[in-house]
Nucleic acid binder design. Structure first.
Lengths: 107, 107
DNA sequence: CAGTTATATAACTGTATCTTTATATAGCTG
DNA sequence: CAGCTATATAAAGATACAGTTATATAACTG
Protein backbone atom coordinates (compact mmCIF):
# COMPACT_ATOMS: atom_id res chain seq x y z
CA UNK A 1 0.00 0.00 0.00
CA UNK A 2 1.49 3.29 -1.07
CA UNK A 3 1.63 6.02 1.48
CA UNK A 4 -0.98 7.99 -0.43
CA UNK A 5 -3.33 5.02 -0.22
CA UNK A 6 -2.93 5.03 3.54
CA UNK A 7 -3.28 8.78 3.84
CA UNK A 8 -6.34 9.22 1.66
CA UNK A 9 -8.14 6.26 3.12
CA UNK A 10 -7.39 7.51 6.61
CA UNK A 11 -9.04 10.80 5.65
CA UNK A 12 -12.02 9.07 4.08
CA UNK A 13 -13.54 8.39 7.50
CA UNK A 14 -15.54 11.20 9.15
CA UNK A 15 -14.59 10.09 12.66
CA UNK A 16 -10.93 10.32 11.77
CA UNK A 17 -11.36 13.73 10.18
CA UNK A 18 -13.13 14.90 13.31
CA UNK A 19 -10.24 13.60 15.40
CA UNK A 20 -7.81 15.55 13.25
CA UNK A 21 -9.97 18.66 13.58
CA UNK A 22 -9.83 18.22 17.32
CA UNK A 23 -6.05 17.81 17.23
CA UNK A 24 -5.79 20.98 15.18
CA UNK A 25 -6.74 22.72 18.43
CA UNK A 26 -3.84 21.04 20.22
CA UNK A 27 -2.55 17.80 21.67
CA UNK A 28 -5.03 15.39 23.26
CA UNK A 29 -5.04 11.99 24.92
CA UNK A 30 -6.99 8.99 23.68
CA UNK A 31 -9.71 9.45 26.28
CA UNK A 32 -10.07 13.13 25.45
CA UNK A 33 -10.36 12.28 21.79
CA UNK A 34 -12.89 9.54 22.44
CA UNK A 35 -15.15 11.65 24.64
CA UNK A 36 -17.18 13.50 21.95
CA UNK A 37 -17.96 10.32 20.04
CA UNK A 38 -20.70 7.81 20.59
CA UNK A 39 -18.22 5.03 20.17
CA UNK A 40 -16.18 2.73 22.41
CA UNK A 41 -12.58 3.41 23.35
CA UNK A 42 -11.19 0.46 21.34
CA UNK A 43 -12.81 1.90 18.23
CA UNK A 44 -11.01 5.21 18.79
CA UNK A 45 -7.73 3.43 19.49
CA UNK A 46 -8.03 1.78 16.13
CA UNK A 47 -8.78 5.03 14.35
CA UNK A 48 -5.70 6.52 15.97
CA UNK A 49 -3.64 3.60 14.78
CA UNK A 50 -4.84 4.24 11.24
CA UNK A 51 -4.04 7.94 11.51
CA UNK A 52 -0.60 7.16 12.88
CA UNK A 53 0.03 4.58 10.16
CA UNK A 54 -0.83 7.23 7.59
CA UNK A 55 1.62 9.67 9.13
CA UNK A 56 -1.12 12.11 10.04
CA UNK A 57 -0.47 12.02 13.78
CA UNK A 58 2.30 11.11 16.19
CA UNK A 59 2.00 9.88 19.77
CA UNK A 60 4.32 10.17 22.68
CA UNK A 61 4.36 8.24 25.92
CA UNK A 62 3.58 10.13 29.08
CA UNK A 63 3.05 7.72 31.95
CA UNK A 64 -0.04 5.76 31.14
CA UNK A 65 -1.22 8.34 28.62
CA UNK A 66 -0.45 8.58 24.91
CA UNK A 67 -0.98 12.19 23.89
CA UNK A 68 -1.51 12.61 20.14
CA UNK A 69 -0.67 15.54 17.92
CA UNK A 70 -0.82 16.39 14.25
CA UNK A 71 2.14 15.42 12.08
CA UNK A 72 3.02 17.39 8.96
CA UNK A 73 4.44 14.63 6.73
CA UNK A 74 1.23 13.21 5.29
CA UNK A 75 -0.35 16.59 4.64
CA UNK A 76 2.70 17.61 2.65
CA UNK A 77 2.51 14.43 0.64
CA UNK A 78 -1.12 15.05 -0.22
CA UNK A 79 -0.42 18.64 -1.13
CA UNK A 80 2.25 17.51 -3.50
CA UNK A 81 -0.02 15.03 -5.22
CA UNK A 82 -2.94 17.44 -5.42
CA UNK A 83 -0.58 19.96 -6.96
CA UNK A 84 -0.54 17.81 -10.07
CA UNK A 85 -4.33 17.97 -10.35
CA UNK A 86 -4.49 21.67 -9.58
CA UNK A 87 -1.96 22.42 -12.26
CA UNK A 88 -3.85 20.34 -14.82
CA UNK A 89 -7.13 21.97 -13.89
CA UNK A 90 -5.84 25.49 -14.26
CA UNK A 91 -4.12 24.57 -17.53
CA UNK A 92 -7.39 23.14 -18.88
CA UNK A 93 -9.24 26.21 -17.80
CA UNK A 94 -6.99 28.30 -19.98
CA UNK A 95 -7.41 26.17 -23.08
CA UNK A 96 -10.00 27.53 -25.47
CA UNK A 97 -11.25 24.22 -26.81
CA UNK A 98 -11.92 22.98 -23.31
CA UNK A 99 -13.87 26.08 -22.44
CA UNK A 100 -15.97 25.68 -25.56
CA UNK A 101 -16.58 22.01 -24.86
CA UNK A 102 -17.65 22.86 -21.34
CA UNK A 103 -20.09 25.44 -22.69
CA UNK A 104 -21.54 22.94 -25.15
CA UNK A 105 -21.92 20.35 -22.39
CA UNK A 106 -23.86 22.80 -20.26
CA UNK A 107 -26.66 23.43 -22.78
CA UNK B 1 -21.90 10.19 3.14
CA UNK B 2 -20.40 13.65 3.18
CA UNK B 3 -18.81 14.87 0.03
CA UNK B 4 -15.41 14.73 1.68
CA UNK B 5 -15.98 11.07 2.46
CA UNK B 6 -16.68 10.42 -1.19
CA UNK B 7 -13.75 12.49 -2.38
CA UNK B 8 -11.12 11.08 -0.05
CA UNK B 9 -12.22 7.51 -0.50
CA UNK B 10 -12.21 7.98 -4.27
CA UNK B 11 -8.60 9.13 -3.99
CA UNK B 12 -7.65 6.24 -1.72
CA UNK B 13 -7.50 3.83 -4.65
CA UNK B 14 -4.29 3.76 -6.73
CA UNK B 15 -6.12 2.85 -9.93
CA UNK B 16 -8.35 5.89 -9.53
CA UNK B 17 -5.39 8.16 -8.81
CA UNK B 18 -3.70 6.81 -11.94
CA UNK B 19 -6.86 7.56 -13.93
CA UNK B 20 -6.82 11.12 -12.63
CA UNK B 21 -3.14 11.44 -13.49
CA UNK B 22 -3.97 10.31 -17.00
CA UNK B 23 -6.83 12.84 -17.21
CA UNK B 24 -4.45 15.56 -16.07
CA UNK B 25 -2.90 15.16 -19.52
CA UNK B 26 -6.29 15.74 -21.13
CA UNK B 27 -9.67 14.27 -21.85
CA UNK B 28 -9.93 10.53 -22.51
CA UNK B 29 -12.59 7.92 -23.25
CA UNK B 30 -13.33 4.90 -21.07
CA UNK B 31 -11.42 2.57 -23.37
CA UNK B 32 -8.41 4.86 -23.47
CA UNK B 33 -8.43 5.03 -19.70
CA UNK B 34 -8.80 1.26 -19.36
CA UNK B 35 -5.96 0.41 -21.76
CA UNK B 36 -2.95 0.78 -19.42
CA UNK B 37 -4.53 -1.34 -16.68
CA UNK B 38 -4.58 -5.07 -16.28
CA UNK B 39 -8.24 -4.95 -15.49
CA UNK B 40 -11.53 -5.46 -17.30
CA UNK B 41 -13.60 -2.63 -18.77
CA UNK B 42 -16.45 -2.98 -16.25
CA UNK B 43 -13.97 -2.46 -13.44
CA UNK B 44 -12.82 0.79 -15.01
CA UNK B 45 -16.41 1.90 -15.61
CA UNK B 46 -17.01 1.44 -11.92
CA UNK B 47 -13.96 3.45 -10.95
CA UNK B 48 -15.15 6.23 -13.22
CA UNK B 49 -18.54 6.17 -11.58
CA UNK B 50 -16.86 6.58 -8.20
CA UNK B 51 -14.73 9.46 -9.46
CA UNK B 52 -17.77 11.13 -10.98
CA UNK B 53 -19.75 10.63 -7.78
CA UNK B 54 -16.95 12.32 -5.87
CA UNK B 55 -17.01 15.29 -8.23
CA UNK B 56 -13.48 14.61 -9.43
CA UNK B 57 -14.41 14.09 -13.08
CA UNK B 58 -17.21 14.94 -15.47
CA UNK B 59 -18.30 13.04 -18.56
CA UNK B 60 -19.98 14.19 -21.70
CA UNK B 61 -21.77 12.15 -24.34
CA UNK B 62 -20.20 12.01 -27.76
CA UNK B 63 -21.92 9.39 -29.86
CA UNK B 64 -21.18 6.08 -28.28
CA UNK B 65 -18.23 7.48 -26.34
CA UNK B 66 -18.15 9.13 -22.91
CA UNK B 67 -15.06 11.28 -22.76
CA UNK B 68 -13.99 12.12 -19.21
CA UNK B 69 -12.16 15.16 -17.90
CA UNK B 70 -11.04 16.50 -14.57
CA UNK B 71 -13.48 18.59 -12.57
CA UNK B 72 -12.29 21.27 -10.15
CA UNK B 73 -15.02 21.10 -7.48
CA UNK B 74 -13.72 18.21 -5.39
CA UNK B 75 -10.12 19.41 -5.43
CA UNK B 76 -11.24 22.76 -4.11
CA UNK B 77 -13.19 21.10 -1.37
CA UNK B 78 -10.18 19.07 -0.28
CA UNK B 79 -7.95 22.11 -0.38
CA UNK B 80 -10.32 23.92 1.88
CA UNK B 81 -10.38 21.13 4.41
CA UNK B 82 -6.64 20.58 4.31
CA UNK B 83 -6.21 24.27 4.90
CA UNK B 84 -7.46 23.75 8.42
CA UNK B 85 -4.76 21.15 9.08
CA UNK B 86 -2.03 23.19 7.41
CA UNK B 87 -2.90 26.19 9.51
CA UNK B 88 -2.84 24.14 12.71
CA UNK B 89 0.46 22.55 11.79
CA UNK B 90 2.18 25.83 11.13
CA UNK B 91 0.71 27.33 14.29
CA UNK B 92 2.02 24.40 16.32
CA UNK B 93 5.38 24.72 14.71
CA UNK B 94 5.63 28.23 15.99
CA UNK B 95 4.71 27.38 19.57
CA UNK B 96 7.72 26.97 21.80
CA UNK B 97 6.28 24.34 24.09
CA UNK B 98 5.48 22.12 21.15
CA UNK B 99 8.97 22.46 19.78
CA UNK B 100 10.42 21.52 23.15
CA UNK B 101 8.08 18.57 23.49
CA UNK B 102 9.07 17.40 20.03
CA UNK B 103 12.75 17.59 21.00
CA UNK B 104 12.16 15.62 24.15
CA UNK B 105 10.22 12.99 22.18
CA UNK B 106 13.13 12.59 19.79
CA UNK B 107 15.73 11.62 22.38
C1' DC C 1 -30.50 -4.31 -41.19
C1' DA C 2 -26.33 -7.28 -39.34
C1' DG C 3 -22.33 -6.91 -37.02
C1' DT C 4 -19.19 -4.48 -34.37
C1' DT C 5 -17.77 -0.96 -30.98
C1' DA C 6 -18.25 1.72 -26.63
C1' DT C 7 -20.08 1.58 -22.38
C1' DA C 8 -23.17 0.21 -18.49
C1' DT C 9 -25.42 -2.98 -15.30
C1' DA C 10 -26.15 -7.29 -12.63
C1' DA C 11 -24.91 -11.10 -9.99
C1' DC C 12 -21.35 -13.08 -7.49
C1' DT C 13 -16.89 -13.73 -4.83
C1' DG C 14 -13.24 -12.65 -1.91
C1' DT C 15 -11.30 -9.45 1.02
C1' DA C 16 -11.10 -5.29 3.88
C1' DT C 17 -13.20 -2.13 7.22
C1' DC C 18 -15.78 -0.52 11.25
C1' DT C 19 -17.64 -1.61 15.30
C1' DT C 20 -18.54 -4.31 19.43
C1' DT C 21 -17.41 -7.12 23.66
C1' DA C 22 -14.04 -9.22 26.32
C1' DT C 23 -9.58 -9.22 27.97
C1' DA C 24 -4.63 -7.88 28.59
C1' DT C 25 -0.94 -4.62 29.94
C1' DA C 26 1.23 -1.13 32.28
C1' DG C 27 1.48 2.82 35.09
C1' DC C 28 -0.52 5.34 39.13
C1' DT C 29 -2.22 5.76 43.88
C1' DG C 30 -3.76 4.86 48.33
C1' DC D 1 0.54 -4.63 46.83
C1' DA D 2 -4.70 -3.96 45.56
C1' DG D 3 -7.26 -1.65 42.74
C1' DC D 4 -8.09 1.96 39.53
C1' DT D 5 -6.98 4.40 35.11
C1' DA D 6 -5.37 4.73 30.34
C1' DT D 7 -4.72 2.24 26.49
C1' DA D 8 -4.04 -1.86 23.40
C1' DT D 9 -5.21 -6.26 21.33
C1' DA D 10 -8.15 -10.16 19.87
C1' DA D 11 -12.12 -12.38 18.21
C1' DA D 12 -16.35 -11.93 15.90
C1' DG D 13 -20.09 -9.91 13.13
C1' DA D 14 -21.96 -6.82 9.73
C1' DT D 15 -21.34 -4.08 5.94
C1' DA D 16 -18.79 -2.15 2.06
C1' DC D 17 -15.60 -2.62 -1.84
C1' DA D 18 -12.87 -4.20 -5.91
C1' DG D 19 -12.73 -7.36 -9.08
C1' DT D 20 -14.72 -11.02 -12.23
C1' DT D 21 -17.99 -12.99 -15.93
C1' DA D 22 -22.10 -12.54 -18.38
C1' DT D 23 -25.28 -9.69 -20.50
C1' DA D 24 -27.73 -5.36 -21.98
C1' DT D 25 -27.99 -0.98 -24.52
C1' DA D 26 -27.16 2.15 -27.88
C1' DA D 27 -24.63 4.22 -31.52
C1' DC D 28 -21.73 3.68 -35.62
C1' DT D 29 -20.53 1.05 -40.21
C1' DG D 30 -20.73 -1.63 -44.03
Amino acid sequence: MSNLDATFSALADPTRRAILARLALGEATVMELAEPFDMTQPAISRHLKVLEGAGLITRRVEGTKRPCRLAPAAVNEIDQWLGMLRKALSANYDRLDDVLAAMKAEK
